Simulated assay, not measured.
Amino acid sequence: MANVLATLDGQPAACASVCVKDGAAGIYCVATLEEFRGRGLGFAITRAAMVEGTRKGASHALLHATEMGIPIYRKIGFTEQCRAPIYGFGM
């Protein structure tokens, strides 16, 4: 597992995690702080996670997307493979 962090003017602004297994980079927890959105940081941090995945031996990447993230991931070249239900449990 590796974590990547984007900063803007010395402030943490966006982050993502990547886990590589069997040649696949799973990209998780992609987030940009609200005040930094609209500046391309989501795109940049996702690409940085992909580069890290490649460095660790991945030949392809996968992720789960929120509605907000879908346009960004499509620009990078991700395509929808399936729709999976998400289950939650309130504690």
Rank of each mutant, 00 (worst) to 15 (best):
A58F: 11
D9I: 01
G57P: 12
I27N: 11
R55E: 06
R39S: 08
V51R: 15
I45R: 03
Y87W: 13
T54H: 00
T66F: 04
V18W: 01
I86R: 13
A2E: 02
E35R: 01
A6R: 00
P71L: 00
A49G: 15
L5Y: 02
P85C: 02
Q11D: 00
L63S: 06
A44I: 02
G88R: 10
A31S: 11
V20Q: 00
C82W: 06
T32Y: 10
R74P: 02
C15G: 11
R39Q: 13
C15F: 08
I45F: 02
M50Y: 11
A44M: 02
N3T: 10
C19S: 14
V20I: 00
G57H: 13
A49N: 14
D22M: 08
I76L: 09
M68H: 04
K75H: 12
C19E: 09
G40D: 07
G77W: 08
T32S: 10
G77R: 05
I27T: 04
A44T: 01
Q81I: 09
Y73P: 13
A31W: 00
R39L: 06
F78R: 10
T7C: 10
C29F: 01
H64S: 11
T7V: 07
D9G: 15
V20K: 05
N3K: 10
Y28S: 02
G23Y: 03
G88C: 02
T54A: 04
I76W: 08
T7E: 06
K75D: 09
A61E: 03
V20S: 03
A31H: 07
R74F: 09
A6Y: 00
E80V: 14
T66Y: 08
C29S: 03
L8E: 14
I86D: 15
H60Y: 14
I45S: 04
G53D: 08
R37K: 10
A49H: 11
T32P: 11
M1C: 10
L8F: 11
R37M: 05
P71K: 06
V30S: 07
I76N: 13
H64E: 15
A6H: 06
H64N: 13
A6I: 05
S17F: 07
M91A: 14
L41I: 00
T46H: 02
M91W: 03
F78Y: 15
G38C: 10
D9R: 12
G26D: 13
G90A: 14
L5Q: 08
C82E: 11
A65P: 01
I76H: 04
I76M: 01
L62R: 09
F89W: 13
T66Q: 04
G88P: 00
Q11S: 04
L41C: 07
I45Y: 02
V51H: 15
L5T: 07
K21Q: 12
A2R: 09
T32V: 14
C15R: 07
M50R: 12
A84Q: 03
H64A: 12
Y73Q: 09
E52F: 05
R55M: 02
V51L: 15
P85D: 09
A6G: 06
M1Q: 12
C29T: 03
H64M: 12
G53R: 08
